[in-house]
Amino acid sequence: MHTTIKFTLLAIFLVLSNTVQSDEAASGINFSGDILSRTKLTGDWGGIRNDMAAKGVTLDLDATHVTQHVASGGFDGSLLDKFPGNRISSLLPGNSETASDGMFNMLLKVDTGKAGLWSGGFLTVRGEGRVGDAVGIRAGGIMPTNGDALSPNVPGHSNKDVLALSEMTYAQFLSEKFGVALGLINTADGDKNEFAGSLRSRSHFMNAGMRFSPVVLGTVPVTTLGVTAIFLPTKNIIGTMGFVNSEESAGYNPFERDKGTTFLTEWQISHTIFGVTGKQTLGFAYGFDRNSLDFGADPRFQLASLVTTGETVRTNADSWVLYYNGHQYIQGDAEGGWGPFLRAGVSDGHPSPVKWNVAFGVGGVGMGSWRPK
């Protein structure tokens, strides 16, 4: 596909995440209050933060620290001895059974309408960093036990100290039901579930296999140039459709990482059954023109190939994935309720060895008055 056409189409998919962010900005978050009740630890900065938000500018920083220990078993390095020199070693914190790492996220959002410029415009800039070691595959599973440590996903820097620009997008709504966006997009909020979270989540499961469908990682990068469109046909339906470069771009010049193209679309339907709410999400991705794209940059998905052939995966073929997630409140709502959730995905199994996945459980918030959050 011609680069200009590809880049233009890519902006369509970005709008969904920016729409959600704009809704949050429009809700009028108040940063004031005492340390036990305010929304952010550092408060309103003497009122400056509230004034900035009122004028369409929000600045946020969050940090997470994780220490994990492999209690028994796990991967002891024998695979490295069998296949010396492969890139799987980058995910191992030496020979230690205990690993400790920290992740931080810096986010700037600008609402051009509130800023007195023009209506319907939203700028999002995100930087992410990671320090220390994660348990990685030392625990013995393909899916990491610490999903937080996957970001930023800088190729060749798994489980290393890194700082990267992971998002810079601009979205413009042309009407209440349609908008477009383009730039360096971040797909970590995709496949989001209210009970199970997403790859971005810091308040749900830690195991990455519960936070999103792992079938997508062979086709959908986390950070890449893209263009998307968003559709809001009714108040209960939100959909996105667009194209992105298939090559991961975090930490690199994104204009030099354009091997392959991925088509993405995701649709969410909110509903009410017997007076309680729920949501269904369905997504599809198709990757093409992926000539000689080397997936060895993500060694978590090389285990199956390494064990059987001693080589990392390469492909010249197209690939596709289909994923679904849904949740349904049985009692209450987002302010205090609970219910079941289901997440599932299928792929053609090339290049990712994950051909299908299923995750399910029960989640909620505010199960009792003694613990309202």
Rank of each mutant, 00 (worst) to 15 (best):
M103D: 00
M103H: 05
M103Y: 06
F104N: 06
F104Q: 14
F104C: 05
F104P: 00
N105G: 12
M106T: 06
M106Q: 07
L107T: 06
L108S: 00
L108A: 02
K109S: 14
K109W: 03
V110A: 01
V110Q: 01
V110C: 01
V110F: 02
V110K: 01
D111C: 10
D111A: 10
D111I: 05
D111S: 09
T112A: 02
G113V: 12
G113K: 02
G113A: 14
G113W: 00
K114M: 07
K114T: 09
A115V: 07
A115F: 04
A115N: 08
G116A: 14
G116F: 08
L117R: 04
L117G: 04
W118G: 14
S119F: 06
S119T: 13
S119V: 09
G120M: 09
G120I: 05
G120E: 03
G120D: 06
G120L: 09
G121S: 12
G121V: 02
G121E: 01
F122Q: 02
F122M: 15
L123P: 07
L123H: 12
T124E: 05
V125P: 01
R126A: 15
R126E: 15
R126I: 15
G127L: 10
E128G: 06
R130Y: 13
V131I: 14
G132S: 11
G132W: 03
G132L: 04
D133H: 13
D133P: 03
A134M: 12
A134D: 14
V135G: 05
V135C: 10
G136T: 02
G136C: 03
G136N: 01
I137D: 01
I137Q: 03
R138M: 05
R138K: 09
R138V: 02
G140M: 09
G140P: 05
G140W: 08
G141K: 07
G141Q: 07
I142D: 10
I142N: 10
M143Q: 14
M143L: 14
M143N: 13
M143H: 11
M143E: 14
P144N: 08
P144K: 11
P144T: 11
P144A: 12
